[in-house]
Amino acid sequence: MRPSLPVEVFAVAEQKWVAGTLFFGIAEHNLEHYEQKWLPELLKRRRETPKLLKAGHEIAAVEDAHWDWAKKMLREHRAPLGFRSCAVEVEGETEGLMQVELATHRSRANKNLNLAYVDYISIAPWNRPWPGQLKRFKGVGSILLREAIRTSMDEGFRGRIGLHSLPGALTWYRDTLRMKAFGADQDYQGLHYFEFTEEQAERFMDEK
């Protein structure tokens, strides 16, 4: 049986917290959910994006639709010590996926120190803001980031995490989470790089 932790997510339509599970490791059925349920919706949204932008809607682009989670898991299978992946499930549905890399990244705040690098983090399309649609669940992304911080603590990195943000998630990392911003990284497709310092990570873990 896959190791797991109980978690709670907020069901927006019902306005109540519901039970979910954080599973350690991404299983075959999570990859199937991504391929068969997430991807068609992501691609549909990608097609609708230009029309919605033209109509004046402020929407986050669907920038992760090209991520090949099966390929990402292959590198984890080849070098399992270097990665930690996990999945959030609610009632058997996959609601969030994350892969953290532990071997090769250093903090940009202090180059001597290692950190847990959030290589990929993604929530199901129905949990993202979209014109005319309520999100199904809130809080999935925070559950995943907390798990990245816990992993960092377990490995002796004291909660330090780092990540590159896709443009659509920039405001969440910068304004909502107030992660330490290092600006656009020209060595990484110009994506903005962020870190949680030890103190920020500790504060984030204490928040509900």
């Binding site: 070098a79 399992p80 270097g82 532990l102 071997a103 090769t104 490995e155 002796g156």
Partner: peptide, 9 residues
């Protein structure tokens, strides 16, 4: 542990 995971990667 860090040495080992780097070596493995």
């Amino acid at each position: 542990r860090q040495c080992l995971r780097l070596y493995q990667v």
